[in-house]
Lab assay of single mutants.
Amino acid sequence: LTVHVGNVTYHFDNPEQAEEWAKRMAKKYQGQIHVKDGQFRIE
Rank of each mutant, 00 (worst) to 15 (best):
L1V: 14
L1A: 15
L1N: 14
L1F: 15
L1H: 15
L1P: 12
L1E: 03
L1Y: 15
L1R: 12
L1D: 03
L1M: 13
L1W: 15
T2F: 10
T2G: 03
T2E: 08
T2W: 09
T2Y: 10
T2D: 06
T2S: 09
V3T: 01
V3S: 01
V3M: 02
V3D: 00
V3I: 04
V3G: 01
V3N: 00
V3K: 01
V3Q: 01
H4D: 02
H4M: 13
H4S: 12
H4E: 06
H4R: 13
H4L: 14
H4K: 11
H4G: 03
H4N: 06
H4V: 14
H4Q: 12
V5G: 01
V5M: 08
V5W: 13
V5Y: 08
V5K: 01
V5F: 12
V5P: 01
V5N: 01
V5A: 06
V5D: 02
V5Q: 01
G6Q: 05
G6S: 05
G6K: 05
G6R: 06
G6D: 08
G6I: 05
G6T: 02
G6F: 13
G6H: 12
G6M: 09
G6V: 03
N7S: 12
N7L: 09
N7G: 12
N7C: 15
N7W: 11
N7F: 11
N7Q: 09
N7E: 07
N7R: 13
N7K: 11
N7M: 10
V8F: 13
V8D: 05
V8T: 09
V8K: 12
V8G: 02
V8I: 12
V8S: 07
V8L: 11
V8W: 13
V8M: 12
T9C: 14
T9W: 06
T9H: 08
T9E: 06
T9M: 10
T9Q: 06
T9V: 14
T9Y: 08
Y10R: 05
Y10A: 01
Y10G: 00
Y10K: 02
Y10V: 03
Y10T: 01
Y10W: 14
Y10P: 00
H11Q: 08
H11T: 11
H11G: 02
H11F: 13
H11W: 12
H11L: 09
H11V: 11
H11Y: 14
H11C: 15
H11P: 01
H11S: 08
H11E: 06
F12V: 00
F12Q: 00
F12S: 00
F12I: 00
F12R: 00
F12L: 01
F12D: 00
F12N: 00
F12W: 01
F12T: 00
D13L: 09
D13F: 07
D13G: 07
D13P: 08
D13V: 08
D13H: 07
D13K: 11
D13A: 08
D13E: 10
D13T: 12
D13Q: 10
D13I: 08
N14Q: 07
N14I: 08
N14F: 08
N14K: 10
N14E: 07
N14R: 08
N14L: 10
P15K: 13
P15I: 13
P15G: 06
P15N: 07
P15M: 12
P15Y: 15
P15Q: 10
P15T: 10
P15V: 12
P15H: 12
E16H: 14
E16N: 10
E16Q: 12
E16L: 11
E16A: 11
E16V: 13
E16Y: 11
E16F: 11
E16D: 10
E16C: 15
Q17N: 07
Q17E: 13
Q17C: 15
Q17H: 09
Q17Y: 09
Q17S: 11
Q17K: 11
Q17D: 13
A18W: 05
A18M: 05
A18N: 00
A18Q: 04
A18E: 01
A18I: 04
A18H: 01
E19S: 07
E19P: 02
E19H: 12
E19F: 15
E19W: 15
E19A: 12
E19Q: 10
E19K: 11
E19I: 14
E19N: 07
E19Y: 15
E20Y: 12
E20P: 00
E20I: 10
E20D: 09
E20K: 13
E20A: 14
E20F: 10
E20G: 05
W21D: 00
W21C: 15
W21M: 03
W21Q: 00
W21T: 00
W21V: 01
W21P: 00
W21K: 00
W21S: 00
W21R: 00
A22H: 02
A22M: 07
A22D: 00
A22F: 06
A22S: 02
A22N: 01
A22I: 07
A22W: 06
A22K: 02
A22E: 00
A22L: 07
K23Y: 11
K23C: 15
K23R: 14
K23E: 05
K23S: 05
K23G: 04
K23D: 03
K23M: 11
R24K: 11
R24S: 06
R24P: 00
R24W: 11
R24T: 08
R24L: 14
R24Q: 09
R24Y: 14
R24H: 08
M25D: 00
M25S: 01
M25F: 08
M25T: 02
M25P: 00
M25L: 09
M25V: 06
M25I: 08
M25Y: 08
M25C: 14
M25A: 03
M25E: 01
M25N: 01
A26Q: 04
A26P: 00
A26S: 05
A26T: 02
A26K: 02
A26I: 04
A26M: 06
A26C: 15
K27I: 13
K27A: 13
K27Q: 11
K27D: 08
K27Y: 09
K27G: 05
K27R: 13
K27N: 07
K27C: 15
K28N: 02
K28E: 07
K28W: 10
K28D: 03
K28R: 13
K28L: 13
K28G: 02
K28Y: 12
Y29R: 02
Y29H: 06
Y29A: 02
Y29Q: 02
Y29L: 12
Y29M: 07
Y29V: 06
Y29P: 00
Y29N: 02
Q30S: 11
Q30M: 10
Q30V: 06
Q30K: 14
Q30A: 11
Q30N: 14
Q30Y: 07
Q30P: 05
G31K: 06
G31H: 08
G31P: 01
G31W: 14
G31Q: 06
G31C: 15
G31F: 12
G31V: 13
G31D: 03
G31N: 04
Q32K: 12
Q32V: 14
Q32W: 05
Q32A: 09
Q32E: 09
Q32H: 13
Q32Y: 09
Q32S: 11
Q32D: 06
Q32R: 11
I33T: 03
I33N: 03
I33C: 14
I33V: 10
I33G: 02
I33P: 03
I33D: 03
H34A: 09
H34W: 08
H34G: 04
H34Y: 13
H34I: 15
H34P: 03
H34C: 14
V35N: 05
V35M: 11
V35P: 01
V35D: 03
V35H: 05
V35R: 04
V35W: 13
V35S: 05
V35F: 15
K36S: 12
K36Q: 13
K36G: 07
K36I: 15
K36V: 15
K36A: 09
K36P: 03
D37G: 05
D37I: 03
D37S: 01
D37F: 03
D37W: 02
D37R: 01
D37M: 02
D37H: 02
D37L: 05
D37T: 01
D37C: 15
D37Y: 02
G38V: 02
G38K: 03
G38A: 02
G38I: 03
G38Q: 03
G38R: 03
G38W: 03
Q39T: 06
Q39Y: 07
Q39W: 06
Q39N: 11
Q39P: 03
Q39C: 15
Q39S: 10
Q39K: 06
Q39V: 10
Q39F: 05
Q39E: 14
F40I: 15
F40T: 05
F40A: 04
F40G: 04
F40E: 05
F40P: 04
F40R: 04
F40H: 04
R41H: 15
R41W: 15
R41C: 15
R41E: 10
R41L: 14
R41M: 14
R41V: 15
R41I: 15
R41Y: 15
R41G: 06
I42F: 04
I42W: 06
I42L: 03
I42D: 05
I42P: 05
I42S: 04
I42T: 04
I42R: 03
I42N: 04
I42Q: 03
I42H: 05
E43T: 11
E43C: 15
E43D: 08
E43S: 07
E43K: 06
E43H: 08
E43W: 09
E43V: 14
E43M: 09
